[in-house]
Nucleic acid binder design. Structure first.
Lengths: 333, 333
DNA sequence: ATGGCGACTGGGAACGATTTCATTCAACCC
DNA sequence: GGGTTGAATGAAATCGTTCCCAGTCGCCAT
């Protein structure tokens, strides 16, 4: 229906090859170039990307598969990735799996069919495993979540250290019965849980934890379950959704923070600073994660056989009122 | 590099046409179909979408251009759109403009070049105007923001009514000096401002308002400016970012809500219920907006010449503590 | 037996761009 | 002036599919 390069060629009185060169970078005389531009204007020509990709055998697109487009962590990363891609003249094909391994698999297939140049991926644990058996045909960079060891470039947070920092902080503030809620679909949840467990052990404290689906409602239920095992003095939540769910549960039960329960978690979302008291969190360097992922991808495209790299970034603890020093007397009244 | 349909054909001992039919819906004997499937497995064949699209002249993709991927309003809509598209066997090409008309134009061009089947768009005011002059080649459905009257199908909130409801509520609660902060990039901001202005006039109250860029920092500055014109008793913010910025400013100044300042706005984001007191908001039917947009798009594809339709949805007021009745005595102490 | 029909299959022409290769033509050097 | 160079242009092949068209084959009715 719409004009093709032949229509433009006819309108300009030149061959299709010349039109292609005039629009691309080939050598074309100024006169003809002007004629072509005019013909493009007249015909309303827009290049057909499908045809271009088919012929040139490159998509000019990188794929980005995220677990949850509603999670500000991922949207932050997506922004950075898109900015870097835009700068490099690449498009981003963004897909959202909602933590569903089936959709993840379907999007992985899609990425192959689109012949994307590279792929940035935050895999669920299920997919991380499968990735080793059937590696995609294009370069892959994993973000946020670990994959099969040593197979893919990756950008990760030092989750164990971050968890340890939170536990250390809580202990220093006088809390002992520290419970943990961790996301069960991601390797990240596992790492954070492990950091929590190890640090609790180091302090000689007994851990009390649960893996739950990464949804606020699940966190509410998880918190209720933890409470039944013995009321904790503090709760550590491994992502912002779980943190929010916990806070909702706390509000519903009418508990005071931090007098009845201290709270700490991950991701410095705006609301964590708006509630009162503010919630202590580990802030992740979202933009840096996105930038590094793109950088790794470009490196890999340039040198396909270079050794696999793993970029480990550190979170920054933002201490707020939710983890104020424990006042034993007040809580005993 | 990767296997093509010819490779599969060779491996299966049939013609490419037969492979195509075996994978599609054409009539193929069971025996050959099995052979083909086996050959697909062996060769690791994945269809090339660029080639398929070129030949079949349809992209199987709908475009979705949003102003701000970080805004939960848009991610909510995007989810619903994607779900509906998935059900219809279509892909979604999601693009984020960050309210930048230039990027909007560039993505509009991209959508043409991708030959998307249809387009769902939340235009800035600048783009809404340009849309009339150079209408895209494919069906367009506008969401959230009005465009050139009568040209495109659209799904909109009854913004004037929503603003009116908030103002009426504030007045009923005893507030008089009600200020407004509205987003300047969207037609939605204009409509909400107009609803605010009209309703204030109906109550015989003097409006005090500002249009600001849709960012939290801009809202802080805008609030400061409004305060200089005379301390308001209540503030109405036309979207969640402005609402958040206003709340940040309020916290920074140490004002109490609602004693020193009542607060109301748009979008029922989780944090509006988590802060204390909770913030009164208009909840928008995100999923319904997405569903309706897809429904309009499908209708349009089926009947390209049907009259233009405009679906007007209503918001739901969620009343919380931030607009509790004004206690004159308390505030005078 | 013949014709017709239906189901299946292969050949080959598209789809719209890019790119190789050959051709033209003007300018230039000795 | 003839041969050489180089830039500009066009013809045609090509990318991987789909799909129209024609052909084959078995089967059934006449």
């Amino acid at each position: 229906m719409t004009a093709s390069i032949k229509d433009v060629a006819r309108a300009a009185g030149v061959s299709p090859a010349t039109v292609s060169r005039a629009l691309g970078k080939g050598p074309v005389s100024e006169a003809l170039r002007a004629q072509v531009m005019e013909a493009v204007r007249v015909t309303g020509y827009r290049p057909n990307l499908a045809a271009r990709r088919l012929r040139s055998q490159e998509s000019g697109t990188i794929g980005l598969i995220l677990a949850d487009i509603g999670n500000p962590f991922f949207t932050g990363v997506a922004r950075a990735v898109e900015a870097a891609a835009y700068e490099a003249g690449l498009r981003v094909l963004l897909c959202n799996t909602d933590e569903d391994p089936e959709r993840e698999a379907s999007y992985l297939a899609l990425m192959q069919e689109e012949r994307v140049t590279g792929l940035i991926l935050a895999p669920t644990r299920a997919t991380a495993d499968r990735l080793a058996e059937a590696p995609p045909a294009m370069p892959v960079v994993l973000i946020d979540r670990p994959g099969p060891a040593g197979l893919f470039d990756s950008v990760l947070l030092d989750n164990a250290a971050a968890s340890a920092a939170l536990v250390d902080h809580l202990v220093a503030q006088g809390y002992r019965r520290i419970a943990g809620l961790f996301g069960q679909t991601s390797g990240t949840g596992v790492e954070r849980a492990e950091g929590y467990r190890a640090t609790m052990a180091r302090h000689g404290l007994a851990p009390s934890w649960r893996f739950v689906p990464p949804q606020a409602e699940a966190a509410e239920a998880g918190f209720a379950a933890l409470s039944r095992e013995g009321q904790p003095e503090a709760v550590l939540a491994s992502n912002s959704l779980l943190l929010m769910g916990t806070l909702q549960a706390v509000r519903a039960k009418g508990l005071r923070i931090p007098a009845d329960l201290a709270l700490a978690g991950f991701d410095n979302e705006p609301w964590t600073g708006l509630v009162e008291p503010g919630v202590t969190v580990i802030e992740q360097p979202l933009a840096e994660i996105g930038r590094q992922a793109m950088a790794l991808l470009f490196e890999r495209l340039r040198a396909p056989d270079a050794p696999v790299r793993k970029v480990m970034l550190s979170g920054r603890a933002i201490l707020r009122g939710s983890t104020a020093p424990r006042r034993v007397l007040a809580s005993m009244l």
